[in-house]
Simulated assay, not measured.
Amino acid sequence: MTTSESVYTAGEKDILHTSLDRHRDAVLWKLEGLDDEQLRRPMTPSGTNLLGLVKHLASVEYGWFVESFGGEVEPLWFDPYTDDDLTVGPGETTRQILDFYGRARAAADAVITGRPLDALGRPGWRDHEVSLRWVLVHMIEETARHAGHLDILRELIDGATGDHPRTAATGTA
């Protein structure tokens, strides 16, 4: 992957991967400084919470990147084809979900770095092939969408907003 300065002139794959990583990092930043109750607190009538969104993103990274391209997905303790991947049960720990997201990211990154953008995969739940390029764009959209949800939920919890930490002196990154 490229450095932050060279991403503006990098190749397509590096630009897409860097964009995905930026949104992934924003997702994790939205959790910083919150306690377990705040991470699990249902913030919408449907029960959406910060930690549930991270669990969902881990699940879809495994599905779209790893499963679609023939990789081995770790055994899941929930059904990823139901809303189980958006909820956090009482027996699931914050560390378990964060570690799951880290492993999913690493497995997805291995697929991204190990295949060309034109590589084709077949999601088990679809009847057609997808290119790695398409999956990267889709996962940028998916992660950015949920990072936006996380931003709103975090603002409702403690007022924090934005997609990256601000410095105290200037208010900028």
Rank of each mutant, 00 (worst) to 15 (best):
L57H: 00
E12N: 12
L20Y: 04
D163F: 13
V7F: 12
P165V: 02
G70N: 09
S68K: 12
V27L: 07
N49Q: 04
R103K: 14
R145M: 07
L132R: 07
D83F: 14
N49C: 06
L98T: 15
E74P: 12
F69A: 06
T82N: 07
M1I: 13
G102T: 10
A169M: 14
W64F: 09
W64P: 02
S4T: 15
I97E: 03
H138C: 03
P116K: 09
H146V: 08
F65R: 09
L39K: 13
G102S: 12
L20T: 01
D35N: 14
L16V: 07
V88A: 11
T3M: 09
P90R: 12
E74M: 11
A106D: 15
Y81F: 14
L86I: 12
V54T: 09
G63R: 06
G33N: 11
A10L: 09
P75T: 06
P80V: 05
R126E: 04
G63I: 06
G11Y: 06
A58P: 05
P80E: 03
K55R: 04
E142G: 04
F65T: 06
S46H: 08
L153Y: 05
L117Y: 10
V88K: 11
P165G: 08
R22L: 04
I152P: 00
L153C: 08
T113L: 15
H56D: 06
F78L: 04
I140L: 01
H146E: 07
Y101V: 10
V73D: 03
W134T: 13
A107G: 11
D84M: 03
D25W: 14
I112A: 09
R105N: 12
L57S: 00
W134S: 14
S59E: 05
K30W: 00
L57G: 00
L120A: 13
I112G: 07
L120N: 07
R24S: 08
H17P: 00
H23R: 06
L20R: 03
H56P: 05
T2E: 10
G121K: 06
D109E: 14
P80A: 01
S59I: 05
A169I: 13
R95T: 15
W134H: 13
I152H: 04
E155F: 04
G11L: 11
E129W: 00
R145W: 07
D14Y: 03
R122K: 08
R41Y: 02
G171N: 13
G148T: 08
A168D: 06
V54C: 02
M1T: 12
P80N: 01
L132T: 05
L51T: 01
Y101W: 14
S68A: 14
A173F: 08
L34F: 00
L16H: 09
R105W: 14
E5P: 08
R24C: 06
W29P: 02
M43K: 05
V54Q: 05
E67P: 00
L31P: 02
V88Q: 12
D14I: 01
A110L: 08
I15F: 13
N49W: 00
V135H: 05
L39S: 12
P116D: 15
E72W: 04
D151A: 05
M43W: 09
A147G: 11
L136W: 08
P90W: 08
G121H: 08
A58Y: 03
